[in-house]
Amino acid sequence: MIGLPSFRLHRPTSIEEAVGLLAEHRDDAKLLAGGTDLLVNLRHGLATPSHIVSLAEVPGLDRIDCSPEHGLTIGALSTLESLATHPGVEESFPVVVRAARTISGPTLRAMGTVGGNLCLDTRCHWYNQSFFWRQACGFCLKKDGTACHVAPGSSLCWAAYSGDLAPAFLVLGAEIKLLSVRGERRVPLDRFFLDDGLRKFDMASDELLTQVCVSATRAHLRGVYSKLRIRGALDYPLAGVAAAARIAGGGTFHEAALALTAVGPRPFLVEGATEILEGLRANDEDAIERVAHLARRLSNPMNTTWAMQPAYRRLRVGLFARDALREMGERGP
C-alpha cells in the first residue's frame, strides 16, 4: 500500500491529555513520536489503530539532563540525533552516545526518539512485509495468523528486538518511567523487556514511556557498542553488544556489564559477566574469553532474517564481547 490507512489523529498538548487519550482508546490507539517505525508498520497493516496519539505538541518530554552529580535523565521525546551529538552524555555515559550514533543515518536520527527506539517493534522477515505478502503466506503468529514460520509449533514469537539503545542503557542499569492515568511507575529497564515478540514490553496499552534515567553512580564508565550490519549505515542490527565498565587505577574491571540486542525477542544483560570480571585485571584474557563465551552462549538468534545465519550472528556476539572488553581495558573512555 502506498498511502496510509485512515485513522483519527489526536494531538494532545499536555502529557495528562496524552495519557487520558491512551486510557480512553487503549488497544485501539497507537502513540506517534518520530514515526519512523509506526508509519512503516501502518502501511504494512502491522498496526491497525483507529486512533493515533501524536506527541508532537506535548511539551517537556525532550529534555536531556546530564551531570556527573545527578546522573542522566532523558525525556522520551528527545531525538536520537540530540543524544548522539550531546557532549555531556558523550563525556559521562559514552556507551549511550556510541549506540545512538550507529542508528540509521542523521535524517532518521533527527526524527526518531529515544522512547521510540526503546519501544521499537520486534522484527522478522515473516512479519515486516506488506499485507499482500503476509496474506499470501498465511500470516504469522505475531500478526493476523496463528503459526510461527521461524519456529513452527512455537507459541512464542521469535521476532528479534532490534533497538540499539536498549543494550547501552541496560549496561548502565537504567530505569524508565511509565506514566498512565493510574499514576507513574519506575521500572528497571532489564525488567521492561519480555522474552516474547508478541508481548514485548511490560507496558500496558494506556502507559506512556516518559523518561529514561541512569544513576550518577554509573557516570564515567568506559563504554563500547558494536553492531553487526551489512552496510555502513541505515541497517538495523543483526547483532549488537554493549559493554560498560570502570577500569580502576590498577587496571582492574569494576561494575563491568554486557548486554545484547538483535539476537532474540528482547535485549538482555549477560548474566554473570559482572561477577566473572569484578576485580580482575583488564588484560586477563582468560576472563575475557569466558565472558565472550558466555555472551555467545546466551545469545539466541533465530532465522528471523534471511540476511545472516544465526551461527554467524552468535559468532560475532562472542567476538564483539571480547573486543569490547579488550578495548575498555586498553584505553578510555
Binding site: G105, H125, N128, W133, A136, C137, I230, R231, G232, A233, L234, D235, Y236, W306, A307
Partner: peptide
Amino acid sequence: YSPQGLLLNGGLLEYRIPGAVE
C-alpha cells in the same frame, strides 16, 4: 525468495544497495 516463492526482501531496507558510507 521464500519457500513458496514470495520475495523476502522487496524493499530498499532489505535489498541492500550500498550507501555513501561504505
